[in-house]
Design a protein around this nucleic acid. Sequence first.
DNA 1: TGGGCAAGTGACAGCTTTGTGACAAGCGTG
DNA 2: CACGCTTGTCACAAAGCTGTCACTTGCCCA
Lengths: 233, 233
Amino acid sequence: MLTKARVRPKILVVDDEPDALELIEFNLKSSGFDVLTAADGEAALSLARTHAPDLILLDLMLPEVDGLEVCKILRRDSATSNLLIVMVTAKAAEMDRVLGLELGADDYVTKPFSPRELVLRVKNLLRRRSAPDEKVERVQLGDLTIDLPRHLVSVQGKSVDLTATEFKLLSVLAQRRGRVQSRERLLHDVWNYENAIDTRTVDTHMRRLREKLGKAARFLDTVRGVGYRFVEA
Amino acid sequence: MLTKARVRPKILVVDDEPDALELIEFNLKSSGFDVLTAADGEAALSLARTHAPDLILLDLMLPEVDGLEVCKILRRDSATSNLLIVMVTAKAAEMDRVLGLELGADDYVTKPFSPRELVLRVKNLLRRRSAPDEKVERVQLGDLTIDLPRHLVSVQGKSVDLTATEFKLLSVLAQRRGRVQSRERLLHDVWNYENAIDTRTVDTHMRRLREKLGKAARFLDTVRGVGYRFVEA
DNA sequence: TGGGCAAGTGACAGCTTTGTGACAAGCGTG
DNA sequence: CACGCTTGTCACAAAGCTGTCACTTGCCCA
């Protein structure tokens, strides 16, 4: 049985420079993350406690409370739950090794960095974290089999070739077996769309999915006026 | 007969820097491991003999007895029972491949690393060891033969000349037969890249691999939008 | 029974991803 | 030092996926 709910990772960005903060925030949001921001250490600690972000991006050069201090506190507070990336200026980069070891950061980037690189690293870290708990590997229902790690779907033993989107759509539906998923919800979970405008996209993909699944298309149910649903019979 | 109680894995950490040693020790203990520490090669060898740790974390930069020497001795002494991770500095990282191959390490990490990552790798290795599977030494599928320990590949009886990178790529794919491997994953496992940016490298190597494998290239499957996969048919 | 609307369908242009050939840098060898 | 081999990157070509549109079909309810 599938349990993994798809959520937008929550990221806390801590930087005292408004410009940098805004830039990072914009880029992360564009990539589908929920972003919280803090301009100083105190706010950062408070937000970290109340929101339990999945990842924290921390600038080491902070006013008031020292960035290093914040870093240590964060590490101690929630050693197991959060990922941490520290940002250091190029000047401080020589101390990399020391920092990396002492702070217990999961990654660190040197300023200035390209937004693209930052987003990549964030994704990498999050993926690595979520990798181990992906225990769900296989869904089997009647003559339909969905094998997540192999990216394989088969009907009556014959493997069906699905595109990445089709596969994701089917997986999402199958994981919420029985529950109707609205088009908006599907657009959000499969496509990472924020505000869906043309909702016919889902319909088209459902059609393609049904076509490829052949007999097993009977699992895909249309609920008029609401959305789609994965049914058992 | 006595039933062996499930024990906390015993880990020996060898590093001449007290700070690093302490940090690693702390993190491993937090994760539920029994930790032994040694600051030099001699102590390491002695502890390894008397305690038979499940895993050894060895810094290659050791005073007195060379880390490499220690590594070799450890490997010879208890080749089958222990797992070994070597830690090398970023500077030496270029030699990664050579080291990994020659020393017979089960994994290696480059300093500096995040404690979290280290713990993850340790857990991974221990889990893999305890799992009975994956001692794949030889893959034979139709006209394709891959001999892992001998570093040999042949198609229809004729041996194929692969470069080190090509061989490793093929091995990684073959050992995870059927499972799709993302480019990021391959970059991590084959190239030891942490943050992959230009992902076309994998593609190019896949092309060369396919070219050299000729008919047997049919085993290498592209999953668009996801990665590559070793298939059986 | 017919109007209104939701969903299904087929086509297609644009775009993203992958394949391919070329090239230059790096490295070890003779 | 020149040579050959390996490797990562680039530019371009090919493949094939995707979202949208126009149109059709079918459902619901007055």
